[in-house]
């Protein structure tokens, strides 16, 4: 039973130009109650790794540079 990839469009979007995760910031990753954000090894920027969002908004509200936007998950929109 191999696992297949099931693509989803993720609700949390990060503006790489504004994100300062590569400078050591982890605020959005820290405050997410569902722990779904990670810092990319490739880009050094934050991104949504797991599509498990409560669209609650601490990541957007607490981001010091305004890099994070929370959209409503597509299935609810």
């Amino acid at each position: 039973m191999p696992l297949a990839l099931s693509p989803t469009t993720v609700p949390v979007v990060v503006d790489d130009a504004k994100c300062i995760a590569d400078k050591g910031c982890t605020v959005c990753v820290d405050v997410c109650p569902l722990d779904v954000l990670r810092i990319s090894d490739l880009t050094g920027k934050a991104y949504m790794k797991f599509d498990e969002c409560w669209y609650c908004m601490p990541c957007e509200t607490d981001c010091p540079t305004g890099a994070v936007t929370v959209n409503i998950p597509y299935l609810l929109r």
Binding site: W54, C56, P73, L75
Partner: peptide
Amino acid sequence: SGYLFGTYENPT
């Protein structure tokens, strides 16, 4: 909605 985390309560 069928979205596992679209609950009324915080899904954690």
